[in-house]
Design a protein around this nucleic acid. Structure first.
Lengths: 118, 118
DNA sequence: CCATAATATAGCTATCTAGCAATATAGATA
DNA sequence: TATCTATATTGCTAGATAGCTATATTATGG
């Protein structure tokens, strides 16, 4: 199960490396779902989907609720921000000319965040 | 070696899921390097690094040159843009309030790109 | 309490992974 | 040509992964 010693980014990128798991996240971006609702669209067994959910949970990308015998799954996107930040360090290599604009926006955003704002 | 049928994002995220490979990319962001230069900082054998390089190459993240008996490795960040774009679809979930600003900038960037500009 | 529905766990297989040491190959140089 | 240096390839091991079926668990509802 991806060695217990794995770093957060290992788990996050590892979770995203599987198309079924990316599809699960895409589905969850439209709202929470039960396990069976997630099983339906794939040609995969329920235990297989449950295993994928465990990988996503281990990466912090989903969390589970409880509603009678249902265990609703919801998206938790926070770790994706870490992944995006890691990628951000390389942005200038694929998008050199727009780098300064990006920096400017990041600065604006940081400023807005520090002022708070709703 | 991550099934031949893997999709590009599988290979990209899969490549990023290993800390040694992320460190190699970080090193390459400072300029190209030979295999032995990449071996040095890790406590890993040369064949192990060569194998990591093959995974990175398969994901399109590095390319190799030839200079005498050296095979210089350089960063190819383009596939990271695909990963970043995928993540971008989830940005609003971790960064709701700044979404409109982000959209605005994306629009600006698209406009600037279509005008070209150096 | 019993039956059913939703989900989790166990146990299995085939394949992939990350690491190693040993060896092969390719190019430069003495 | 012989040798040295840089890198690739081979063959191995231990452990992870993705899938399955069968079974256990948990909670509802009769």
């Amino acid at each position: 199960m991806m060695s217990t010693a794995a770093q957060p980014l290992d788990r996050i990128f590892g979770a995203l490396a599987d198309p079924t798991r990316r599809a699960i996240l895409a589905r969850l971006s439209g709202g929470e779902a039960t396990v069976n609702e997630l099983v339906a669209p794939f040609g995969l067994s329920q235990p297989t989907i449950s295993k994928h959910l465990k990988v996503l949970e281990y990466a912090g990308l989903v969390s589970r609720g409880r509603d009678a015998q249902f265990r609703p799954v919801r998206l938790n996107a926070a770790p994706l921000a870490d992944a995006a930040q890691w990628l951000g360090d390389y942005r200038r290599f694929w998008d050199e000319s727009l780098d300064r604009l990006e920096d400017y926006v990041e600065e604006l955003k940081a400023r807005e965040k520090s002022h708070d704002g709703q």
